[in-house]
C-alpha cells in the first residue's frame, strides 16, 4: 500500500516538474495579488493584515488544488482504476496537495511580510499556524476537487462547494492566528483551538477516505 502511494506521489511530483507552467502560474498568481494589495493599501493594521492573508491563502489553495483532479482525463483515470485502490489514490493526492500548499503558504507568507509590512509579534508561531492552516484547507479542497471533477463546470464549482465547507476551519484559523499578534488568550484556549482544527482535519480525512470510493467509480 505504502509503495503504491509513494509511486502515485512520485508521478504527481514528476508531472509538476515537467509541466512547470501550472506551478509558475500559481506563483505569478500569488505575486500579482499581493502586489495589487501592496499598491491599494499601505500598512494595514494587524486585523486587516490577518484577514487579507487568510483570504489570499484560500484563493491560492483553490487555484493550486483545483487542478489535482481536473488534469486527470478519463483514460488515465481508467488506468489508475485498474492499478490502485481509491483509498491509496485519494491519500496520495492529499499528501501531494499538502506538500504543494506548504510551499505555497510559506511563499505567500514571505511575500506578504515583505510587501505589506510585518505586524507579527511571534513570526515562528504564525508560520506554524500557516502551515497547519494551509494543509487543512488543501485537504478539504482535495475532496471538493474530486467532487467537482465529476460535474462538467468544475473550476467554478470548486469555489461554490468549498467555501461554505471551509468557513468553520477558516474562522478557527483566523481566531488562532491572533495569538501571534500578541492577543492574550484564556489559559488553554490556544491548545483547545489547535486541537479542534486538527480534529476537524482528521474528520475530513476520514470522510474523504470513506466517500471517495463512491466518487471513483464511473
Amino acid at each position: 500500500m505504502y509503495k503504491r502511494i509513494i509511486a502515485l506521489l512520485k508521478k504527481d511530483i514528476l508531472l509538476e516538474l515537467r509541466q512547470k507552467h501550472t506551478f509558475y502560474g500559481i506563483l505569478l498568481y500569488i505575486a500579482a495579488t499581493i502586489f495589487v494589495l501592496y499598491l491599494s493599501i499601505d500598512k494595514p493594521d494587524a486585523n486587516i493584515w490577518n484577514g487579507l492573508f487568510w483570504v489570499i491563502l484560500l484563493f491560492v489553495c483553490v487555484n493550486a488544488v483545483a487542478k489535482s483532479f481536473l488534469q486527470e482525463n478519463k483514460g488515465r483515470m481508467l488506468y489508475f482504476y485498474s492499478i490502485t485502490s481509491p483509498v491509496e489514490f485519494i491519500i496520495s493526492k492529499m499528501i501531494y496537495n499538502i506538500l504543494l500548499m506548504t510551499m505555497m503558504s510559506l511563499l505567500t507568507l514571505m511575500l506578504f511580510s515583505a510587501f505589506l509590512t510585518n505586524p507579527l509579534n511571534n513570526f515562528l508561531l504564525f508560520t506554524g499556524i500557516v502551515l497547519l492552516g494551509g494543509s487543512s484547507i488543501s485537504i478539504v479542497f482535495t475532496l471538493m476537487s474530486a467532487i467537482a471533477a465529476k460535474a462538467q463546470q468544475n473550476a467554478a464549482l470548486i469555489a461554490i462547494l468549498g467555501f461554505p465547507v471551509i468557513l468553520p476551519q477558516l474562522l478557527l484559523l483566523i481566531r488562532l492566528s491572533k495569538t501571534a499578534f500578541a492577543e492574550i488568550f484564556k489559559q488553554g484556549a490556544v491548545m483547545q483551538l489547535m486541537a479542534l482544527i486538527i480534529g476537524l482535519d482528521i474528520l475530513v480525512i476520514a470522510m474523504s477516505v470513506i466517500l471517495f470510493p463512491y466518487l471513483w467509480k464511473e
Partner: peptide, 21 residues
C-alpha cells in the same frame, strides 16, 4: 451519487459549524 457523497460530507461539517464553534 455525487450529491449523496456531498450530502454526507455536508452533514459532517454541519456539526462543527452549528454545534461546536
Amino acid at each position: 451519487r455525487v450529491s449523496a457523497v456531498y450530502n454526507i460530507f455536508a452533514f459532517a461539517m454541519l456539526f462543527p459549524s452549528i454545534w461546536i464553534i
